[in-house]
């Protein structure tokens, strides 16, 4: 089986993925997104930076830390009929919090009350509608960047004014959420195909509990209930290899916060005792075989 691993650079996760492929006697060609130069209309016969034609690959596994490079590469490869993990469709939905919210809604999956508005004035109204404290997020972006919790009208005005001065139009899409009064932690669950293979709690004294922000990871047992909502959420965005981030509300119910399509997992195998990279790679190999 010929596999291309598309990366921005090699991090701990990519090393684990390469090792997991090697364990199955597959040695992926590593392709750097900085070297991509596609001719859009001449199809998969053209050479990849590795020298092989794209069509020779049974799959392209996308692990770019650059979300936009990864997404457009998937768009092109899928348009040529090349199997990728994840698919462009899934990446495009997960890369956009608003599109994720729409997909979750369509599939009846619980999520925080969310509004969207396009100007500071209407965003102020949206914040007052969800009530304080409210959470303001960029629709694209990760690692908790530019997330804000607003407690009153004064701080809302200051933050909206600041966002409006940021040049990028992305920051003028005001995605406003109710603050979920969670118990000092969130949950990250790893879904591979139709199965939740592991989950962690991420605990922190800060309201942003991401491990990217230094949250502590401990094992979270995968109950039937948790598996059910995670698998449904994964299907809602097109399925694949996904990290579902959930919050527990004041009543102890799960709400899906967001879904990541190029997940980080280096700190999650140790607390859960699950070899996440191997589970992922065994799944993609099997998928490539059954539909070959």
């Amino acid at each position: 089986m010929r596999v291309a691993l598309l990366v921005t650079h090699i991090r701990a996760e990519e090393k684990l993925i390469i090792e997991a492929f090697n364990n199955r006697d597959i040695s992926p060609d590593i392709i750097l997104d900085r070297e991509l130069n596609f001719e859009i209309s001449s199809g998969p016969g053209q050479p990849a930076p590795s020298g092989s034609a794209w069509r020779e690959y049974d799959m392209v596994f996308e692990r770019c830390v650059s979300t936009s490079r990864g997404m457009y590469a998937l768009a092109i490869l899928n348009s040529w009929g090349i199997r990728t993990f994840n698919t462009y469709e899934t990446a495009a939905i997960c890369g956009d919090k608003l599109r994720t919210s729409i997909a979750l809604t369509r599939h009846g999956i619980p999520q925080p009350h969310t509004r969207v508005a396009f100007t500071p004035d209407s965003a102020m109204q949206a914040i007052e509608d969800v009530e304080y404290p409210a959470v303001l997020k960029p629709v694209t972006g990760s690692w908790g960047r530019l997330l804000a919790r607003v407690h009153n009208r004064d701080s809302a005005e200051a933050i909206l004014e600041h966002r409006q001065t940021l040049g990028d139009y992305n920051h003028h899409i005001y995605y406003v959420q109710e603050y979920v009064d969670k118990p000092g932690r969130d949950i990250r669950a790893f879904v591979v195909g139709d199965r939740t293979i592991a989950a962690i709690y991420r605990e922190s004294n800060h309201w942003i509990t991401n491990t990217a922000r230094g949250g502590l990871a401990t094992n979270c047992p995968v109950t039937q209930n948790l598996d059910d909502i995670c698998v449904r959420a994964a299907r809602a965005v097109g399925g694949g290899i996904l990290a579902i981030d959930l919050l527990e509300d004041a009543g102890g119910n799960y709400v899906v916060n967001e879904i990541n399509h190029t997940m980080e997992f280096r700190n999650s195998s140790q607390p859960t005792g699950v070899n996440i990279a191997q589970a992922v790679i065994d799944y993609v190999i099997e998928q490539a075989r059954v539909t070959a």
């Binding site: 650079h9 650059s66 990760s142």
Partner: peptide, 23 residues
């Protein structure tokens, strides 16, 4: 830092994090 080559080892500053970087 990014390891640009192994034999001999070459190191360069890794590219700056861009706004769309993440999971």
């Amino acid at each position: 830092l990014e390891i640009m080559s192994l034999d001999p080892v070459g190191l360069e500053l890794a590219p700056e994090i861009e706004e769309d970087w993440g999971e």
